[in-house]
Every structure is written in structure tokens, then in C-alpha cells.
Design a binder for these strands. Structure first.
Length: 495
RNA sequence: GACCUGGUAGCUCAGCUGGUAGAGCAUUACACUUUUAAUGUAAGGGUCCUGGGUUCGAAUCCCAGUCAGGUCACCA
């Protein structure tokens, strides 16, 4: 009884054989390469001598000749061995081919090769290997994903559980995966660049917080031993960035890893990334214009879509009117409940009025907005950190950006009246007792104090980076755009 | 948290109303000097997710658990 598969045992034996031959299967010395696969292919010159390193992905032994494929970080190229002209340090020449190549080399091994470029009869760019160095022996068999002449992929490594748990294997054998993450990094860089050019400052604010503020969500709780206090992983960084605006920064932003102890699904991972940006002396109208610029810029680059600004702007109540025919303006809760019933939307007396409005929007309206649309002017109670609307005391100066039926950004004219803010925090805690009963929720009085010193009028926005990347890379699941999505412990780890 | 679906060889999967576990690729051996999903011949490889139950007999039926996916709830 063993947890080691037959194939692994065979590979471990090969490892021992290599050592007996005097070959270290895990050498420490730097390996010099002169080029990459991509460069070779782009500037192919027959008889060039090159040195590259990478992973052996395929081996085709034909007696006295052997073909293989080696993959480095830029691509995959065919290599060719035969029993003449092959050299490995310290090994009898004829043994190199007969023993090392034919018997001890495995798919998955990481090797360095020095050789001469040529083209085969089939016109395939190939490296004629003169010297091979084993750089790292692989003792676990790689899934064999194969592509046929028609580029149809066979036996694709597709089990998502395996792919997410062993992302390293996913990255090795599934060609398109790396691109998603290259793109993710590029998207973030482009946005940073866009903001830097405007003179906004990237900052770091605490991940461990005394009071998890700036949103309502169950936080992850941890404990500081020497201070003997609970600390919370941030659910948002909003209140800290606003403190910086109080402190005199003109514009600040942070790509914030936030943590929420909530359910997981294809749109939610316990840790996720949000870009938060705050700019002094602006309001949410300015922020809509600014958001249009970022979104247009990013979608042009990464999807080659040219959205036209201004994007559609519609108040949430108008949107509901448009898609349901019901005008909720000035309507009391009882009447809204009646409408929910008519629309077949879950309702009961315990659900907050604004939550009902939001549910109607989510169910009946949101999915209709495929082109970028600003949903604006939410009821005031839904937005405790937002300024009252300048023209309507029941509304707030807030917008959400919807693209493809997905909420991508949330922004406001930031509330900077300290007395109003304290009042709203108190109301919010009353409204959300159900959520707060499991941990002691405190009002962030230091944040109120900061506002008391005076925060300039400010516009702020949060952009969900994971969802943006999903949109730009055509992925339907957040796990596909996170290198290591959250997983439960495997019950049995096979060694 | 609820419900539905799934977990079989390294990978991708088949396995009917219960009767000693199958394929392709991968692996091993032999053959083969231009292959590229190499080919040909032969062979080996299994905790059928875990635990319990029903049964003469369970991969298969039942119960519980576990992991994953999906739908819903939660996530202003």
C-alpha cells in the first residue's frame, strides 16, 4: 500500500541512476542562456549556435533519432537529438544518447541545451542539440495535453479543482492561462500610470485595522498577542484614504486587498482587490467624467472596444420605472412591498425599504445594462458615507458603474460633514444589528475627529479590479483571474 | 447556510437493471535516423473520495461525512 504512484517510483529510480552516473539532477550552478524560444523563432537563422533552458514537454524517440519539445517562458520549440554529436559533462559519449536521452529523461524535466538551429524536412524550426544539462529532474508525471493537426486540444487538464489547487501545473500545461495574469498585471499598471500622470499619489494604508470600517461586511478577526487586542483584516480602506485627504493630499489611491468573511461564489473570493481613489475639491459628476476616461482608455487597450462618452446616466428610481413601470418616488415601505410581490421579488417586513429598492434594481434592471451605464442618485439611507444630493434631501450623490450587467465601480461625493457622518454611523448600526451582533462594532471616532478638522469636498471611487479583469479577459469566474483562489483544505494530500 | 450534480489509473473519461475494474494519452520493454496527437508489438499500473449500512456479492443501491462545481441565501 503506497501513496506513490508507479510512475513516480520509476522516476525516483531514474534520479538515483543519474546520481550514480555522476550527474547531479538538481545542480546549483547558474545556467547561461543566450536567447529565448521566441527570439529564436522570430529571428531564425540556420546554423546559429544557441543556448536555452526550459521544460521538456514532449519526447518522440525514433531509434537513433529523437525529437522533443522544450518550453521556456516565451514559448515552445522542437529539439532534436541523435547519438552523434551529443555531449554531457563527465559522461561517456555514446551513453549520453542511449542512457540519458532514451532512458532517463522524462517529460517535465527542466533542461538546458546548447545546439545549432536547423529546419527539418517538415520545415519545423528545430534545435540540433549538442550538449544537454539536466537542471531539475521532475519526479511527478505531467498531464499530457495534446494538440492535433487541426489545433484541437485533447485531454485538456480541465478539472477546475485540480487547476486551482495546482495552479503551477495549470500554468505549465494550459497555454492560455499565463496570458490572463500577464493581462491582469498590465491592466493594473496601465491604471496606475493613468493616475500617476494626473499627479495622484499611490499610498499604503493599514490592512490590520482596529475598527473594520468603510463598508458593511463581516470581517476576519485576528489577535495581536503583545497588545492583547483583536484586530480586523480590512473590509475597505476608504476611511484611511479620506484621512489622507484631510491631511492635505490632493489625490490618493491604493490597490487595496480587502477581506470579507462572506459566502464564496463565482463573483466573490474572501480576499479581493479594489482600487480606491479620492480626489479633493471634486464631486461625483467630475468623477463620472473621470471614470469615463479610465474605462474608455482601458477597454480600448485590452478589448479594442471604443465606448462613447458620456455614458448613459440614469437614476436608480428612473431605471426601475423604465424596466418595471413602477414609480417608487416618495413611496412608503408597504407599497414597495406590494410592488415586490407583483414583481415576484422576495419581500418581508424585516427587509429594509432601501434593500427592497436595491433588490428590485438587481433583479429587474441591472442585467439590462451591457454598455457602461451610471446608475445615480441612490436613496440616502443606502449610502452612509455619501453626501446628500444637492437638489433632493432623500437622495445621495452616488453612482455605480454597470458594464455587462456587472457592478464595476461605486463612487460618491464624499460626506465631509462630521456631525452628519456621526449621525449616519449611529443609524447604520441600528439598521444592521443583525450583522453586528456577532462582533462588537464600534464607530470609528478617530475618523469623525479627522472630519472635524475639516475634509475638503472630495470625490471618491472604488473599482472592483477582479471583476474588471474578468470583463477584460472574458472570464465568468473570479477564480480564473486569481492565481491562487481560496480553497478548502484537501482532505487527503497524495504524496 | 439550503438544494442539485459530480469525485473511478499520472491526465481526460467510460463503466447498463448489483456479479472478479475499462479506453485513449502517459509509464515500462523491444523495434525504428526527420518525427511533431510519431508509429508498431507486448506489459505493468486502482484505497473506484472517506466511513457505515443493505446484500451471498457494492464503483453501482441506502445513510452520514468530505472536497469541488452549479443554483439560491448572505455579500448596503
Amino acid at each position: 500500500m503506497s501513496y506513490i504512484s508507479e510512475q513516480q517510483i520509476i522516476r525516483i529510480k531514474k534520479l538515483e541512476k543519474l546520481r550514480k552516473l555522476g550527474i547531479n539532477p538538481y545542480p546549483s550552478k547558474e545556467y547561461n542562456i543566450t536567447t529565448t524560444v521566441q527570439k529564436i523563432k522570430n529571428n531564425f537563422l540556420e546554423n546559429d549556435k544557441i543556448s536555452i533552458a526550459g521544460r521538456l514537454m514532449r519526447l518522440r524517440i525514433l531509434g537513433k533519432a529523437t525529437f522533443g519539445n522544450i518550453k521556456d517562458h516565451t514559448g515552445c520549440i522542437q529539439i532534436y537529438f541523435n547519438k552523434y554529436n551529443l555531449y554531457t559533462k563527465g559522461i561517456n559519449k555514446k551513453d549520453v544518447y542511449n542512457i540519458i536521452i532514451k532512458k532517463l529523461l522524462d517529460i517535465g524535466d527542466i533542461i538546458g541545451i546548447i545546439g545549432i538551429l536547423f529546419k527539418t524536412k517538415q520545415n519545423e524550426k528545430t534545435v540540433y542539440v549538442h550538449k544537454i544539462t539536466i537542471l531539475s529532474k521532475s519526479i511527478r508525471p505531467l498531464p499530457q495535453v495534446k494538440k492535433d493537426k487541426n489545433k484541437i486540444i485533447h485531454d485538456i487538464f480541465s478539472n477546475v479543482e485540480h487547476r486551482y489547487r495546482m495552479r503551477y501545473v495549470d500554468l505549465i500545461v494550459n497555454d492560455n492561462i499565463k496570458d490572463i495574469f500577464f493581462k491582469r498585471t498590465k491592466i493594473i499598471k496601465k491604471i496606475k500610470n493613468f493616475l500617476d500622470v494626473k499627479g495622484y499619489i499611490e499610498v499604503d494604508t493599514p490592512i490590520l485595522q482596529l475598527i473594520p470600517g468603510g463598508a458593511i461586511a463581516r470581517p476576519f478577526v485576528t489577535h495581536h498577542n503583545s497588545l492583547n487586542i483583536p484586530l480586523y483584516l480590512r473590509i475597505a480602506n476608504e476611511l484611511y484614504l479620506k484621512r489622507l485627504i484631510v491631511g492635505g493630499f490632493h489625490g490618493v489611491y491604493e490597490f487595496s486587498k480587502n477581506f470579507r468573511n462572506e459566502g464564496m461564489d463565482r463573483n466573490h473570493n474572501p480576499e479581493f482587490t479594489v482600487l480606491e481613489l479620492y480626489v479633493a475639491y471634486k464631486d461625483y459628476y467630475w468623477m463620472m467624467n473621470f471614470t469615463e476616461k479610465i474605462i474608455k482608455y482601458i477597454f480600448k487597450i485590452f478589448k479594442n472596444i471604443c465606448y462613447k462618452a458620456p455614458f448613459k446616466r440614469i437614476t436608480i428610481l428612473e431605471s426601475i420605472k423604465e424596466y418595471t413601470g413602477f414609480d417608487l418616488n416618495n413611496m412608503d415601505k408597504n407599497n414597495i412591498i406590494k410592488i415586490c410581490r407583483k414583481l415576484n421579488i422576495k419581500e418581508n417586513n424585516n427587509i429594509d425599504k432601501n434593500k427592497l429598492i436595491e433588490n428590485i434594481f438587481e433583479e429587474k434592471c441591472k442585467k439590462n445594462y451591457t454598455d457602461p451605464t451610471f446608475i445615480i442618485d441612490y436613496p440616502i439611507e443606502m449610502s452612509p458615507l455619501t453626501k446628500k444630493h444637492r437638489d433632493n434631501k432623500n437622495l445621495s450623490e452616488r453612482f455605480e458603474l454597470i458594464i455587462n450587467g456587472q457592478e464595476i465601480a461605486n463612487a460618491y461625493s464624499e460626506l465631509n460633514d462630521p456631525i452628519d457622518q456621526l449621525d449616519r454611523f449611529k443609524k447604520q448600526i441600528n439598521n444592521e444589528k443583525k450583522i453586528f451582533k456577532n462582533y462588537s462594532m464600534l464607530i470609528d471616532k478617530d475618523f469623525i475627529r479627522a472630519l472635524e478638522y475639516g475634509m475638503p469636498p472630495t470625490a471618491g471611487i472604488g473599482i472592483g479590479i477582479d471583476r474588471l479583469v474578468m470583463l477584460l479577459t472574458n472570464n465568468k469566474s473570479i477564480q480564473e483571474v486569481l492565481l491562487f483562489p481560496q480553497m478548502k483544505q484537501e482532505q487527503e494530500y497524495k504524496f
